[in-house]
Amino acid sequence: MSLTPDHFDSQPAELLRSGRPVLAGISGGRDSMALLSLLSGMEGCRVIACHVHHGLRPEADEEAQFVREYAASAGVPCVWRRADVAGMAHVQGISTEEAARKTRQNLFLEWAAEYPGALVALAHHRNDQQETALLHLCRGASGIHGMSPVSIWANGLTVVRPLLNFSRKEITAYLEEKNIPWREDASNQSTEYTRNALRHHVVPRLNEIFRRDTSLSFSRACRIENQIRTALAQALEAMDLTDPQGRLYLPGVNRLPQELKQCAVHHYLRQQSVPDLTEAAVLRVMKILDADGPSRTSLPGGKMAVRKEKRLFVKDAPPQINKGEPRPADTAGGI
């Protein structure tokens, strides 16, 4: 498949061509540089390059300068910000990866305030989708689901991922054909992190065993799973299980069959942006639905679920004290 805007899925393409400002996350890496090139040449697309300097690697200064200079050469507006990700992780008692993700989402929300009606564009591709699905599957995070071409963040921003149907190999070929430069993040080669270990060891072995590009199969499976999840979410929304404050109303939830009750809890926790959501975490929350059970439980990402006055809600947990920093979360595609 040719890597052109004409081959984007119809829903993201329609949004990108709508004339709304498009805040494109540009790290300077391979995938985001392809995204910037494609969007800058896309008819009707008002792209703004958005770069976050995480302050975590020595080469971050050079990468920020590279993105600014390339955007200027392409005639694309560029906004960027330096952030103290390590400081946030320490103060909030969360992983560096989770702090980076929170930082990016907060900055996109600030930038969106400067560009009314803006949506966010991210450069996740088909191989990212496979790695994400494998992570969810192996962690017990409710099956083989991945990222959607269009989704809504908890802060209300619309997010599009127009490259989900394209492979890393196709993106590299596009960059080489167009003579577009990019910067390699050396940490991507380290197998210390789970996602990188899957990328460098597990996925190549799967391709070798099945003698084909298995990312295509994962892409199809994720697309079907996302359709099922969308239908289930629409059914749960129609049940009106939350109160005006957005808390889960437990008398209504407890009337549901057990399987649907668990789905309702899982759906609510995802709406509250609980990261790395596993079956074990959902089952812990299920225990506090009972008035005779515990009234709160911990959740990933420095959050906790609380039962109060027949309502369930999620809030930030108190900061950890005198504890080592958790292992990075290897979250999907970085945002």
Rank of each mutant, 00 (worst) to 15 (best):
Ala83Met: 12
Lys310Val: 07
Glu177Ile: 00
Gly333Ala: 01
Ser298Arg: 15
Arg311Pro: 15
Gly55Phe: 02
Ala231His: 02
Ile321Asp: 05
Asp31Gln: 08
Ala221Asp: 00
Gln262Tyr: 03
Arg168Trp: 13
Gly333Trp: 04
Leu35Val: 01
Val47Met: 03
Asp292Gln: 13
Arg101Phe: 02
Leu157Val: 04
Ile152Asp: 00
Ser2Lys: 13
Gly19His: 08
Arg327Phe: 09
Ala305Cys: 03
Tyr70Ser: 14
Ala74Phe: 06
Gln105Phe: 12
Gln234Gly: 09
Arg104Ala: 10
Leu299Ile: 00
Ser142Asn: 12
Cys222Phe: 14
Val52Glu: 10
Arg229Gly: 07
Leu248Val: 06
Ser142Phe: 06
Ala231Ser: 05
Gly143Leu: 11
Glu69Gln: 03
Leu269Met: 06
Lys308Asp: 12
Asp61Lys: 10
Leu36Trp: 11
Leu216Thr: 05
Arg247Glu: 15
Leu250Phe: 13
Gly324Met: 15
Ser273Asp: 12
Gly156Trp: 00
Pro275Leu: 02
Leu135Pro: 07
Ala24Ser: 07
Leu135Val: 06
Ser142Asp: 10
Lys261Leu: 11
Ile321Val: 12
Arg57Val: 07
Ser40Gly: 04
Ser18Lys: 05
Met42Pro: 04
Val159Gly: 01
Asn188Leu: 15
Asp128Ile: 00
Arg104Phe: 00
Arg183His: 07
Ala123Cys: 05
Ala264His: 00
Ser217Tyr: 14
Arg17Cys: 09
Ala235Tyr: 10
Ile335Trp: 01
Glu69Leu: 01
Pro181Met: 10
Asn188Asp: 11
Arg296Pro: 08
Ala118Lys: 01
Gly93Trp: 11
Leu3Phe: 06
Lys315Ile: 08
Gln271Tyr: 09
Ala231Pro: 00
Ala238His: 12
Ala291Ser: 11
Asp276Thr: 09
Ile209Gly: 01
Ala86Thr: 02
Pro244Ile: 14
Met42Thr: 07
Leu283Glu: 04
Ala34Tyr: 12
